[in-house]
Nucleic acid binder design. Structure first.
Lengths: 142, 142
DNA sequence: AGAGTATTCGCAAACGGTTGCAATAACGCC
DNA sequence: GGCGTTATTGCAACCGTTTGCGAATACTCT
């Protein structure tokens, strides 16, 4: 069990949630992949390891870990993907509409924009799950 | 038939699409409402006027008008709403997570942010349908 | 105006995702 | 370790949205 996984399990128990084999499995699958993973792939791998696994459990588990801050949700195309929250600091994402690549974006780049909205409109943007779509340098170069 | 509606019909034909009673109806319903309208309400009103109206037709029509630039899509909560594109100039939206109000945001406020992403990462953000969620001044005041 | 043709429609089935519920199982306590 | 409580699961039904398809119809051309 990796360090990240340990921490996630502790976060669970601290909030009074129970550690079930299904939750551990989902955690290991997402943590074992590289970067973000789509719900369908999490489900496919989980069902391989434990054939009774239900898609509803996968959704509930991913949402729970997201709520606990253990996982971060990224919108890729029109589907949600999940990754272990970067312990080295939260970051936002730039998602390319062409290649579907997801690039990290430091919160620092959004601070100015946030300040403008607050000052001008008194509008406090929710940047917890901010993702901006567009075209990355590789796909945009003609 | 209002001026906006006329223009929308012309946009349709210029692209080789046909003007059907269903499309005209959806156009008039969305144009007749104040601000944005949810799909379910468009469908409800359309079915009142024309009982054979199908929900699939409503979706297809709204998507078509969006593609033509006639309508603008706004994410309110987890549902999409539609409004006639503001002819006085495109704008983005700030949507309040509490009261679900949608406030216009001039593109000018995003220009700086856009320039930063392009310069720093070569990432060209898609601001065509940019909507930022958060808490508005009314709901945020304690 | 009437015929031909490609588009659009209504319907039904399918999709991804969510929810209600009875059965199961994780945990706290003795 | 076994018992009781309560959270969690698997299942099935459901939701909003999309898609495939044959029938209907808007438009073009004569």
């Amino acid at each position: 069990m990796t360090h990240n996984t340990q921490q996630a399990v502790e976060a669970l128990r601290e909030q009074g949630y129970r550690l079930t084999p299904q939750r551990l499995l989902v955690l290991q699958i997402v943590g074992g992949g590289e970067g973000h993973m789509g719900v369908d792939e999490v489900f496919r791998r989980a069902k391989e390891a434990y054939p009774y696994m239900d898609i509803a459990t996968v959704y509930r588990t991913l949402h729970l870990f997201k709520r606990l801050g253990v996982m971060t949700e990224v919108a890729i195309g029109d589907r949600l993907h999940y990754e272990l929250t970067d312990p080295a600091g939260r970051h936002h994402h730039m998602v390319c509409q062409v290649c579907h690549g997801a690039y990290n974006l430091s919160p620092h780049y959004l601070e100015e924009f946030r300040a403008t909205l607050v000052n001008e409109f008194g509008f406090e943007p929710d940047l917890e799950h901010f993702t901006i779509t567009g075209v990355c340098s590789g796909c945009g170069a003609e």
